[in-house]
Simulated assay, not measured.
Amino acid sequence: MEDPHRGLHSEHGALAGEHPGRAANPVIKVHDVAWLEFEKPDLVRAEAFARAFGFTPTLSTEHELHLRGTDPGAPCVLIRRGARSRFLGPAFRAAARSDVLRLAESAGRPVAKLPEPVGGVVADLADPNGLRVRVVSDTHELPALPPQEPHTFNFGHETRRTNATQRPPRTPARVRRLGHVVLQTTKYRQTLDWYLGHLGLIVSDFLFHPGRRDRGPVMSFVRCDRGSSPADHHTLALTLGPANRYVHSAYQVADLDALAAGGEYLREHGYHHSWGIGRHVQGSQLFDYWRDPDGFMVEHYSDGDLFDNTLEPGWAPMTASGLAQWGPPATADFLGVKPGKEALRELRAVFSALREDNEFDAQRFLGLLKVARS
């Protein structure tokens, strides 16, 4: 039987003339993703899910909700009350205040102070899709909280645990930190080059439609350039599609037991499971996907890859089966083709995108259908 994962990933970088995966002279090099910002109409409902998912609120008022993990630093999700649910954009943490000043000057944007609950300074930019992208520094540093410790495992003949049992509690997984955000764009190449050129991000992996590598990539997993210090395989992922939108965000937990037991807790409390548990190909993360009450997809993950700046991008075909090394098949909900309001919105976006001047043309649409069926 043919191995469905054969040839899914190449460690050999670009062919002649292909995208190199990094900008030659970026304006700055951000250090990490800082937080994500949302608007939601029901903050009570949002907080209930957040606690079940494993966040700790640091600010909870009638108008605003801040959520953190156990790692030290700023809150990793900021939610304001609004008339409708929407994603406002990501914030990235600069390595120094001088980088915020340099970026603001380069873009012709002002530097402003952030509100006191967060502190620090910010430069607000807009990516090619009009999404607000914030770059911040000198934010208040919240102290670490007691983390959920990984379990001690006996592997093969390596005995590390004796006279002790494994009894992981069925409680919320404790989120440690924000890992990455995935965005869909109708202007994939332009958007990718913008993030590489302005924020100094570098590509870990490119995906292309099966049999169409000659047309270039349609998705990229992008990491921070910290030189010889390892960074997450991706802090940002960009994918070509018929609408500019948030796809999902991912939050690190301690280990597989935390991810699985935390998922059982969410299931018992009536929350919507999207896909998992499995292990990804690009990034290698153990994953489990959920939807919050507003329909936003969020991921628990553990054991992801870390790369320094010496690795060249991998190249692989984009297929539904290639999203995981093991685990259940990708669901229609995860792929965005489950019948319902979201699929209808995406279908309407397809017809709109095909009438506009962007990278999502008829051939890309057919390639996307092939991916969903693979």
Score class of each variant (00 low, 15 high):
Asp3His: 05
Pro4Cys: 08
Arg6Ser: 13
Leu8Asn: 15
Glu11Thr: 05
His12Ser: 15
His12Leu: 15
Ala16Glu: 15
Glu18Thr: 07
Pro20Ser: 12
Ala24Leu: 04
Pro26Ser: 04
Ile28Ala: 10
Ala34Phe: 04
Glu37Phe: 03
Glu39Phe: 05
Arg45Gln: 10
Arg45Ile: 00
Phe49Ala: 00
Leu59Ile: 05
Ser60Gly: 00
Thr61Lys: 14
Glu62Asp: 14
Leu65Cys: 11
His66Arg: 12
Gly69Ala: 05
Pro72Ala: 01
Ala74Cys: 11
Pro75Cys: 09
Leu78Trp: 14
Leu78Gln: 14
Ile79Gly: 01
Ile79Arg: 06
Ala83Lys: 15
Arg86Leu: 05
Leu88His: 01
Asp99Leu: 09
Val100Phe: 06
Leu103Trp: 10
Ala104Met: 06
Ser106Tyr: 12
Gly108Leu: 08
Arg109Ile: 03
Ala112Val: 08
Ala126Thr: 14
Pro128Gln: 08
Asn129Ser: 15
Asn129Cys: 15
Leu131Lys: 05
Val136Gly: 01
Ser137Ile: 03
Thr139Met: 02
Leu142Phe: 14
Pro146Trp: 09
Pro147Cys: 01
Pro150His: 03
Asn154Gln: 04
His157Arg: 15
Arg167Met: 13
Pro168Leu: 01
Thr171His: 08
Thr171Cys: 12
Ala173Val: 07
Arg177Thr: 13
Thr185Val: 03
Tyr188Glu: 02
Leu196Glu: 08
Ser204Glu: 08
Asp205Val: 01
Asp205Ser: 08
Phe206Cys: 06
Leu207Pro: 12
Asp214Pro: 11
Phe221Asp: 03
Ser229Pro: 12
Thr235Leu: 12
Leu238Asn: 06
Thr239Arg: 14
Thr239Pro: 10
Ala243Asp: 06
Tyr251Trp: 09
Leu266His: 04
Arg267Thr: 05
His269Pro: 11
Trp275Asp: 01
Gly276Asp: 09
Arg279Trp: 07
Asp288Gly: 04
Phe296Cys: 06
Met297Glu: 12
His300Asn: 13
Gly304Met: 01
Leu306Phe: 07
Asp308Trp: 10
Leu323Trp: 02
Leu323Pro: 06
Ala324Ser: 15
Trp326Tyr: 09
Trp326Gly: 07
Trp326Ala: 05
Pro328Met: 03
Phe334Asp: 04
Phe334Thr: 00
Gly336Ser: 02
Glu342Ala: 06
Ala343Gln: 06
Leu344Ile: 04
Glu346Arg: 02
Leu347Phe: 13
Val350Lys: 15
Ala362Ser: 14
Arg373Ile: 11
